[in-house]
Amino acid sequence: MEKPLSVYFFGTCLIDMVLPQAGLAAMRLLRREGIEVIYPQGQTCCGQPAYNSGYDAEARTVARCQLDAFSRDIPVVVPSASCAGMMKVQYPKLFAGTPDQERAEALARRVVELTDFLARVLDWRPVDRGAPLKVVLHQSCSARREMGVADAAKDLLARLAHLETVEPDHAHECCGFGGTFAVKQPEISAAMAADKADAILATGAQVLVSQDAGCLLNLGGTLERRCPDAAAQPSPRPAVKHIAELLWERTHDS
């Protein structure tokens, strides 16, 4: 893929409602690179929650809404490997044998995860304006496996000169979010999240970043419960940020 003139931005429902500053940061980054960023107001959710719960018909109805919202032949940048995976890998299966199959396949081809877009398509080389900082990177399972874009996030952080980036012990292991899994199997999910949170704390990093908001909500919420005293100095737990927020913060003129 070459650097496009315009891209769509799919904010994802989670970022839309809970972490909009991450979505905004990502869009600003793209706009600063001279790309026209289009945020279709008709977008909603990729449909993954229903799909992973086995409610295929409901998922399809909602997914079709995104086929409509992102219909032009330009890339769709997604600040979440999980939602990107849903659109890129699962949409063609979800719509196989339906009249929308072709549209779904076409959209799938245009979907790019944000860090992958920045690192690979734009070969973005930022100047780090921030102070030295130790960051722990949590890669989502979708980034590692379904999308295979884990290298991109690592790459981008490595391009920021004043960052020290580490990964937690058992880095390859899931944080326990898994969408509806966290609600359907709360105890197992909590046990996974607790281990991941401990591994993150053990790194002593000041900031936790990830390319997926789901993992961040899970880990941020768990970290908050595990060490409620955030006012202590130095804080026992890292600040929790989407990778787009961190990248924007450290590279723009304030």
Partner: peptide, 25 residues
């Protein structure tokens, strides 16, 4: 039970995108 509740943002990304002038198609 083991996590604090996520807080909804004061303004959604849909609104923020509009007010920052991102085209909405």
């Amino acid at each position: 039970r083991t996590r604090s509740a996520p807080a909804l943002a004061p303004r959604s990304l849909h609104e923020l995108a509009r007010s920052e002038g991102f085209r909405g198609e």
